[in-house]
Computed example of a mutant assay.
Amino acid sequence: MRALNHRALRRSMLALLCLGLLGPLAARAADNTPALTVGLIAASTAENVTEDWKPLIEALARELQTPVKVLASKNYADISGALKDGSVQVAWINNKLAIELVENDQAAVFAQMVRLDGSRGYKSVLFARKGGPIQSLADVITRPGSYSFGAGDKKSTSGYLVPNYYVFAKNKIAPEKHFKQLSHANHMDNFLAVADGRVDLATNNTEELPRYQAEFAEKFARVSVIWESPLIPNDPMVYRKDLPVATQQRIKKFFTAYGRTEAEKATLKRINGLGSFRASSNYQLRPVVDLELFQALTNAMAENAKSPEKLAAVMGALTKRAARLDTVLNATRLDSP
């Protein structure tokens, strides 16, 4: 009987020992947090952006106890496509890209970038060379065929959507016809093109100005801002809708808590002069959705003015899209801070 008790005791002790050793691993397996890839839009270079985000990405990997990789690209379509096909699960993107992903039920906004000064918005700008022939927006509008223009990526909010509406659509200008030369590039390349005299005019935004002033002081002194847009909501952070809910919650909690230590504050400052990430939702896209739909309506009316049938069809499609987006955004309105 004693032998049986000893064997039972040894089995019990072994079971307890195994439980103690495997407990953390079992808990991690039960949590089942998948490996992640974070997508980042590179306003300068992919290498610079990856380096700026490195401490945050490493902290996220420690928090989730899972590998976290980075995909950084100057090409907006690279990040958007990777989110769509599932090779990227979390991303920093602009409002225009976020609208497309939210509309297709592929991703959701969970946080918004907040600047060091507490601001939650930025402005699109037009740059011209200081002392050059373009001194005001009126110079651009009244002299068709005179200047070269560096536009942003067609999926850029501040580099394309906003100036296309406020500067061109409202003045009944088609950029491809108005300028003697039209090119598309990212923000830094457009800034350098104006500073070096390779284009006369280019788009940019107020988020990037402090970086240029710090890194390219001499070149920055060669350019001037001739136009600023109304305020645009700061860029969102999104995650894919098919991530486990528990993982989504942990990611959101991590980002909205990040920035409490001095090291974390320094990292956020390097990431485009940020102060924090604020909890947000799809509803933050409302102003840009309204802008995009109004521009689409303006373009449709101009392009189909002589064809009532085509205009009616386009208007019907736009009305359906507006209703669909209204439903998607309002569904998260009560969750918006």
Score class of each variant (00 low, 15 high):
S12I: 13
L22I: 07
A26C: 15
A27G: 06
D31P: 09
A35S: 13
L40G: 00
E51R: 15
I57L: 07
R62C: 01
L64G: 01
Q65D: 15
D78Y: 01
Q89F: 06
V90P: 02
A91E: 02
I93M: 03
N94Q: 06
I99N: 00
A107L: 03
Y122A: 13
V125R: 09
L126E: 03
F127R: 11
Q135K: 15
S136V: 07
D139R: 13
T142K: 15
P144V: 09
S148E: 03
K155S: 11
T157W: 04
V162K: 10
A174Y: 15
L182H: 08
A193R: 11
A195H: 04
G197A: 10
R198M: 00
E207N: 13
R211Q: 05
Q213N: 08
A214R: 14
R222V: 04
W227Y: 02
N234V: 05
D235P: 09
P236M: 01
Q249L: 09
R260P: 01
R260L: 10
K265E: 00
A266L: 11
D290P: 12
A296T: 11
L297P: 01
L297K: 10
A300T: 15
N304H: 15
K306Y: 12
P308N: 04
A312Y: 02
L318A: 07
N330P: 05
N330A: 08
R333N: 05
L334P: 05
D335I: 10
